[in-house]
Design a protein around this nucleic acid. Structure first.
Lengths: 236, 236
DNA sequence: CGATAATTTGATGTGGCTCAACCTACGTGG
DNA sequence: CCACGTAGGTTGAGCCACATCAAATTATCG
């Protein structure tokens, strides 16, 4: 049950029932956390990793003035800080955006998996490298795209990820991020994010109504922002 | 011999002589590649990973106009595309900057390691996550720092990495990147890179003479660009 | 010594930031 | 059920960091 969305549409078929059962028994606790709560702080040593069952979680780093740069936005099915298992401590903060249902997996249980189930271990490794591939795309986005394309690119990524876990029908999905959050993800001020969203709407590409995102013309949007989903390693 | 610099100053002490010998025998070939050569292209399936013994290698992505964004710069001791082992194909290009000495490790040999040596496997996993941590710092750099701080931050990172493998004395090191390369790493035009380098020199922080970088005042430079090396996981 | 790549400099344009105000939605308590 | 407080969203005016374009200068290397 818990890991129903784990690597869904990725290489889940390479996970045996046995593997999934093993993961399931590795969970020490499932709990619900309210929105806007810090889950882990930069520098703190961690002893378990967090798997996201439901909700939205972000990872971020602050500059010296406290301005925030998001480095990842997580959706159900993501093993949020699995990289903390080999690294032992985090180089950034982790916080919920919405109310979240999470599963905690102690690192001791992961040791057991690595020692006895090399195939499953390799899949866990794979899942951390998906995050790294997304990081690279974020570097590209921030370094090479202008503001409107950065915004479009961000939404294209989120949509593809949500679709892979059945949370988007390809044009409409729920995403309760404020414009300030979006700005922190795309490296721009909330004011400019507001203008870019208006521009995208006026161009008939996408619009945001309350927490609902509607991609009016997804393929045109993808063209605008040079979005190629291959880095997400989604199959089928 | 080959892996003398692998994870040096990281957690190398956790690698046994046996582990190192195993890595060594996993190498199928050691070769020398001239500078400015493409080693692997985006999308191509790969069957071996490349370990960098000597030289500088970069990874990058191109936008639709061919403008390049570097996503990583590698120094000796880096396992350049080890992430290609679980991922099976690359989401970016890889190219040499200088003449390089590299070791090729077939993925079949890595399978053997993962199946029989969980501790070594976890160290390999760890090394791919170091790259991910650097990616995150690059996201922060591009999203939150102004041009001069981006440049300083880039040099601080390179210096720390080179120092960890004995290629920097803490103030002076060799780095044969053109100003165009540097611009592609820091998300700015070569013209602006040139002006930022002048500015850094005039402020007495660092200067570049030919291929030699001299950090005149490293701690002031680190302050300017909010550089905190903890994300590099260098010990001692 | 000539060809080519890299660096440097100047002039001008503009994308996105800053600052400031106002508007709207919504939750809370009276 | 309304009054009010607060967070989020919207809009405008002005400015500045960085891009662009163009040309000159300096290294590098056959």
């Amino acid at each position: 049950m818990i890991f129903d969305d784990f690597l869904r549409q990725r290489r889940r078929n390479q996970l045996s029932q046995d593997d999934l059962a093993t993961l399931e028994t590795a969970v020490s606790e499932v709990r619900t956390v309210p929105g806007r709560r810090t889950l882990a702080e930069k520098g703190a040593p961690i002893t378990f990793s967090t798997y996201l069952i439901e909700g939205i979680i972000c990872r971020y780093m602050d500059d010296r003035d406290g301005a925030r740069q998001l480095v990842a936005v997580h959706v159900p099915g993501d093993f949020v800080d699995l990289h903390g298992y080999p690294l032992k401590r985090l180089d950034h903060d982790v916080a919920t955006i919405t109310t979240c249902k999470i599963a905690c997996v102690p690192h001791g249980a992961l040791d057991e998996i690595v020692a006895t189930r090399p195939k499953l271990a390799k899949m866990l490794w794979f899942s951390t490298l998906l995050d790294a591939a997304m990081h690279r795309e974020w570097i590209f986005r921030l370094g090479r795209l202008d503001a409107i394309a950065r915004v479009g690119h961000f939404f294209c990524e989120i949509e593809a990820k949500l679709r892979a876990v059945g949370r988007s029908d390809g044009s409409t999905f729920l995403l309760p991020l404020t414009q300030a959050d979006l700005g922190e993800a795309c490296g721009m001020t909330p004011v400019h994010m507001n203008r870019m969203l208006r521009e995208l709407k006026e161009q008939g590409l996408m619009e945001v109504r309350r927490d609902i995102v509607i991609m009016t013309d997804r393929s045109a949007l993808m063209r605008l922002c040079e979005f190629d989903p291959s880095y997400l390693f989604i199959e089928g």
